[in-house]
């Protein structure tokens, strides 16, 4: 990659938009995952009885069961949300950057 190309791409609004949007999105989703997981782990470490509470009177199923299943489904859902946006919007932007570059370089 030549210095000119680097300069051109860095100045390309599509590129800036791609980098900005994807970074914000990836950070938000990562924080969501880490937050959910660490809250779960810290709950287990400090107040495990919360997860051991029965769901309803007379039920043996505890709060921890749906919470645990939720985290598994949540992790999977987050990957789905990310892939959907990345394979659509982000790839379109990335394609736009490549098109712009091809155009600029042939001029």
């Amino acid at each position: 990659m030549t210095q000119e190309m680097i300069k051109a791409i860095k100045a390309d609004p599509s590129y800036r938009e791609l980098v900005r949007k994807r970074r914000a999105f990836a950070v938000r989703l990562s924080v969501a995952m880490l937050l959910v997981y660490f809250v779960f782990i810290v709950t287990i470490a400090f107040v495990p009885s919360v997860l051991g509470t029965p769901l309803s009177a007379g039920s043996v199923t505890t709060v921890g069961i749906p919470v645990g299943i939720f985290i598994i489904v949540f992790a999977f859902a987050l990957t789905g949300v990310y892939v959907r946006r990345a394979n659509g919007e982000f790839d379109d932007l990335s394609h736009q950057v490549k098109e712009n570059m091809r155009r600029d370089m042939t001029l």
Partner: peptide, 18 residues
């Protein structure tokens, strides 16, 4: 056992995002 398996799963979204 469920706590443990959750630990093994949550690294995957992070691998995807980052």
């Amino acid at each position: 056992g469920l706590i443990y398996s959750i630990g093994f799963l949550v690294g995957w979204p992070i691998i995807l995002f980052l």
